[in-house]
């Protein structure tokens, strides 16, 4: 009973929605609307799942004075202050805490909640810069392609990028020529010739690359986004969607039951 009924509920609701897509008339269309309405009500309660463990875990830390208990005390305190402030606004001032004149929105939300959340995520700017510096290496053809696409998009999507990009790419080609030349000087025979050709090609490419980027970088970035990038993303998302549909079918048919644990 503890497993069969939930599996049955999942099956019925899932199948009904699929039928309603193809037969949107009575009774399926109407049932779908009713079920949607119920989901709107029940769905809200999923937001608070895990609340008990969050509070209990932190309460335990405070009680046992475990490491970090001060932060836990702040967590519990901020939980109750927010709760009382929000509901208090309704009970005492008789207005929704989300009213533009509500102190909850004007002070707590604007000056406590928003700065905390916004700053926490702004730290990612530093991490991505550091990670790019540390991990982004042009080791082979694919990673060089990735790196070049990234650089073209990063510069092609910002103002003045078109003026800066030619110099950066020209410098890279110059470095490449130097690298080939140095490597070539350590080898002999065909390999040496190949390295020297590489160095020569790099130098010869400097002017055309400089010219093209100076005049067309923004267009190139547009093209990357709209053609090859778009095509690959479409392919990836078609694959993900097929996976999503298969997973949903497994759930509806009761093959996948992990959500009942």
């Amino acid at each position: 009973m503890k497993r069969e009924i939930p599996l049955f509920i999942t099956f019925i609701t899932g199948v009904l929605l699929v039928i309603a897509l193809f037969v949107p008339h009575k009774p399926f269309g109407q049932l779908q609307q009713t079920f949607n309405d119920w989901l709107i009500i029940v769905g809200g309660f999923t937001m608070i799942l895990g609340l008990d463990s969050l509070l209990l875990h932190n309460w335990e830390k405070i009680k046992r004075k475990k490491e970090g208990w001060i932060s836990s005390a702040f967590l519990i305190a901020s939980f109750f202050i927010t709760l009382f402030w929000g509901f208090g606004e309704g009970a005492i001032a008789h207005r929704s805490p989300f009213d533009p004149s509500a102190t909850f929105l004007r002070y707590f939300y604007t000056y406590v909640f928003v700065p905390l959340q916004a700053t926490m995520f702004s730290l990612l700017a530093f991490f991505i810069a550091s990670a790019a510096y540390r991990a982004f290496r042009a080791k082979d053809g694919n990673s060089t392609l990735l790196l070049s696409a990234a650089a073209l998009v990063m510069l092609g999507r910002v103002p003045a990028g078109q003026e800066v990009a030619p110099w950066i790419f020209a410098f890279v080609l110059l470095l490449l020529a130097y690298y080939f030349f140095k490597e070539g000087s350590k080898t002999t025979g065909t390999q040496k010739t190949l390295y020297l050709i590489g160095a020569l090609v790099s130098i010869l490419l400097i002017y055309p690359v400089f010219y093209i980027l100076l005049h067309y970088l923004n267009g190139i970035a547009d093209w990357i986004m709209n053609i090859p990038q778009m095509a690959a993303k479409r392919g990836i998302w078609i694959g993900i969607s097929l996976g999503g549909i298969a997973m949903s079918l497994r759930i509806i048919l009761g093959v996948e039951k992990t959500y009942l644990q």
């Binding site: 991505i128 810069a129 790019a132 510096y133 540390r134 982004f136 290496r137 042009a138 790196l147 650089a151 990063m154 510069l155 910002v158 990028g161 800066v164 950066i168 410098f171 890279v172 470095l175």
Partner: peptide, 12 residues
């Protein structure tokens, strides 16, 4: 953006 590209270049 320019700085990050220069940093990537430096890293390489």
């Amino acid at each position: 953006h320019v700085l990050i590209i220069l940093l990537i270049l430096l890293g390489n």
